[in-house]
Design a protein around this nucleic acid. Sequence first.
DNA 1: ATGTTGAATTTCGTATACGAAATTTGCAAT
DNA 2: ATTGCAAATTTCGTATACGAAATTCAACAT
Lengths: 222, 222
Amino acid sequence: METIKPQKSLVDQTYEILLNAICTGEFAPGTRLNQDELAARLNVSRQPVNSAISILRTNRLVVDTGRRGVVVAEPDISLFQSIYEFRSVIEPLAVQLACTRLPADAAPEAEEILIRGERAVATRDTKALLEADIDFHQMLYRWSGNPVIDTSMQLNWHHIRRSMVEVLKTPLAAVSSWAEHRNIARAVLSGDTTAATEAMRHHINHANEKITATLADRRDPK
Amino acid sequence: METIKPQKSLVDQTYEILLNAICTGEFAPGTRLNQDELAARLNVSRQPVNSAISILRTNRLVVDTGRRGVVVAEPDISLFQSIYEFRSVIEPLAVQLACTRLPADAAPEAEEILIRGERAVATRDTKALLEADIDFHQMLYRWSGNPVIDTSMQLNWHHIRRSMVEVLKTPLAAVSSWAEHRNIARAVLSGDTTAATEAMRHHINHANEKITATLADRRDPK
DNA sequence: ATGTTGAATTTCGTATACGAAATTTGCAAT
DNA sequence: ATTGCAAATTTCGTATACGAAATTCAACAT
């Protein structure tokens, strides 16, 4: 049976809207978040806006200016590096655990995402490809059965999405290696822990190198 | 030169007080958080209390009841297991990175904490020992230069502290293996990456086994 | 005794109000 | 033109107010 879902509070809705605006780059880094303005724009009072901003602050997506209010945090490249150091051990752990805890309908779920990604590559749809990428990895976190991996990576993906705004302005082929996902999925689904962790390790290092190069090039183009 | 620190907001102060009350077990799992009551007790209005609870909710320290308000989350043993799976790869990563990025005054800082821990063991001061343990590992996160490790583990330590409330009711010797910390510190300070990560891996597995056994025994004593 | 209904109460989410701190503005002095 | 300073304005943090949903409780019916 289903459970009744109480509709989301204005705080949560406000948080999600602001989070999305920050991650898509709609609110550029350094932008000040004016509570009155946001409240008016979202048709709510300042109270939910204020609470949502508190949460954004604890998640480091905005930073205190000390004086008045908060500004959107700068997505610095060193944070991005740190996230990839982090992923380089967490993602292999996720697939390792996933190998031993596969759900029943794992295969079709993976296939749907893989096909979606392949179609995105074919149509040069960068936005859809990023979405498929996120979905693929989050699927593995779920399969791992480890909620700590899931929640910690959740936060990191927000930061990754932010950095990707820059990256995805360059030609798609330069940063995508979607084919690697299929290798990972095959290894996990067949329960081959060693192959799966190795494929994932390779994938993360590969992605990191490509994206870091792109970001560095954007910052300091030759 | 120093920078002027604006005093903490009531929201932050409230959050810290509530967090501490939850982690020390003062607010037992399942306890309902009544906003009016807390506001009165802390001598603030309900507004900061409400915001603080929003943050506690995003950090999974309290859970929505669906109907009215929130209750302190149950510290379930599977979450604890997940944290240790997580630590089993993150802590070795932290020491590996720390080996290559040691700050100048690393040795005396480590020594201070090690001595503090040894004194705590000698005097059977469980609270001080847990504090030294947290400080030791957080020192390594800082040395690792990776803020993602630091923030993600920060959250996990809150959950660990909560579980430790139960664990520390048993004789100290059963769960402590403080001596291992000195081995880790020695390896890190000498820049021996292999030895450091190995010592850390051993330490985490060891701690997990001991604590899990204690928790299981408490739950289902023979 | 048990179940039902609806009024009283509690408690939360959200709106509005208020005071304080910071910033901007305007104007006079150099 | 630049600097100094005070008044006006903005904007935030926090308090208070209000309406709605949930819970409690009591009267009543079975």
